[in-house]
Design a protein around this nucleic acid. Sequence first.
DNA 1: AGTATGACGTCTC
DNA 2: AGAGACGCCATAC
Length: 113
Amino acid sequence: MTKNKENYFDQVYQVVKLIPKGRVTSYGAIANYLGLKSGARMVGYAMNSSHSQPDIPAHRVVNRAGVLTGKHHFETPFKMQELLEQEGIKIEKDKIIAFEQHFWDPIELEKTL
DNA sequence: AGTATGACGTCTC
DNA sequence: AGAGACGCCATAC
């Protein structure tokens, strides 16, 4: 398979789809889980490509500060905040309140095993 | 084909 | 302690 580019792009999609409802994670957390400590940018960029994926809750992925940096890439800049609020997450000034409280890390998956 | 930029994060000065 | 620059891999022009 020469064109089988299972980049960590696909890995990111899998992890993002595994994010439990009402929980959020950060780009760095995913990158760290995949082993890319500095590849946080790629995680976010993968989200940009997430338009090719049907079930990518990109609204559950925010930056390290819990800020909805990518909200502008959604259907509407308010869609991201709306989706998060629907899951019980409060947002203020595009920032998640009690971010660490809703923070979820893919590492917990293996840790729970 | 090469350059520039990007939904971030960490290191260094 | 605050500000600036770099790194990561891929896509776009």
